[in-house]
C-alpha cells in the first residue's frame, strides 16, 4: 500500500458515495447510464472471484465486498426506486460492442489460461471501457448535472492515481503488471476530454455543457 493507491481507492469510494447521494437527494437517476453501472457490477463480480479462495488483507476484503454490494445497490436504485427517472432512449450504447472484444482480448492476452485468471483479465479490460455508455449519453444530451460531473471526476481520478502507484511499486518492489497498467492508462485516457471541461468549467462554477 502506498499513498497513490490509498488516495486512488478513496477517490473510488468517494465516487460511489457521490453517486448514491445524488440519487437520494434529487430522487432521480437522470443523466446516469444504467449500462455503465451494470458493467461495473460485471467488472466487480468477475474480478473478485478470488474472494472465495484468496485472503489478501482485511482492507482488501472489505473493499471488495463494498464495491460488489454498492454497485448492485446502485442498479437496484436505478431499476426499481427511481426507475421512472431513467430514460432508456438516451442510454443506447451497445454494451456487447464492449463486452465481446474485451472477452476476446482476455482469451488472447492473459497471464494464465484458466477460468479465474481470464475472468480477472476480462474485468480489467471491461473496466477500462465501461464508462463509454455514460460518456456517450452525455455527448448526446450535451450536458450534465454538476453532481454527476463530480462523480465522474472522482471515478477518473481513482484510475489516474493508480498510475503513479504502479510507478512507485516498480521502483520499490520491482513489480510490473502490464495488463493492469496498459488498461489503466487507456481507462484514464478516456477521461482526458472530460477532465478538461471539468477543470476549466465546472470547477470555475460553470455548468457542464458540451459545444453543440
Amino acid at each position: 500500500m502506498n499513498i497513490f493507491r490509498l488516495l486512488g481507492d478513496l477517490a473510488h469510494l468517494a465516487s460511489i458515495f457521490i453517486l448514491v447521494h445524488k440519487m437520494h437527494t434529487t430522487r432521480s437517476c437522470r443523466g446516469i447510464s444504467f449500462k455503465t453501472q451494470a458493467l461495473y457490477v460485471v467488472v466487480f463480480v468477475t474480478r473478485y472471484i478470488d474472494l472465495f479462495y484468496s485472503w489478501i488483507s482485511l482492507y482488501n476484503f472489505v473493499m471488495k465486498i463494498f464495491f460488489i454490494s454498492s454497485s448492485c445497490y446502485i442498479l437496484y436504485l436505478m431499476k426499481y426506486r427511481f426507475r421512472p427517472t431513467h430514460d432508456p432512449t438516451l442510454d443506447t450504447f451497445k454494451v456487447e460492442y464492449l463486452a465481446g472484444p474485451c472477452f476476446a482480448l482476455a482469451l488472447i492476452f492473459n497471464y494464465h489460461f484458466d477460468f479465474t485468471e481470464i475472468m480477472w483479465t476480462f474485468s480489467i479490460y471491461l473496466e477500462a471501457v465501461a464508462i463509454f455508455p455514460q460518456l456517450f449519453m452525455m455527448q448526446r444530451t450535451g450536458e450534465a448535472e454538476t453532481i454527476t460531473t463530480h462523480y465522474l471526476a472522482a471515478l477518473g481520478i481513482y484510475r489516474a492515481l493508480y498510475i503513479p502507484n504502479w510507478i512507485y511499486r516498480y521502483y520499490t518492489e520491482g513489480t510490473v503488471d502490464p495488463i493492469a497498467i496498459v488498461a489503466g492508462i487507456v481507462q484514464t485516457g478516456l477521461y482526458l476530454d472530460f477532465f478538461y471541461v471539468y477543470f476549466t468549467k465546472v470547477l470555475q462554477g460553470q455548468k457542464f455543457e458540451l459545444p453543440a
Binding site: R5, D50, Y111
Partner: peptide, 10 residues
C-alpha cells in the same frame, strides 16, 4: 507481477 492470484489491487 503476473503471478496467479497475486492480484492485490482493487
Amino acid at each position: 507481477g503476473g503471478k496467479q492470484s497475486g492480484h492485490d489491487e482493487l
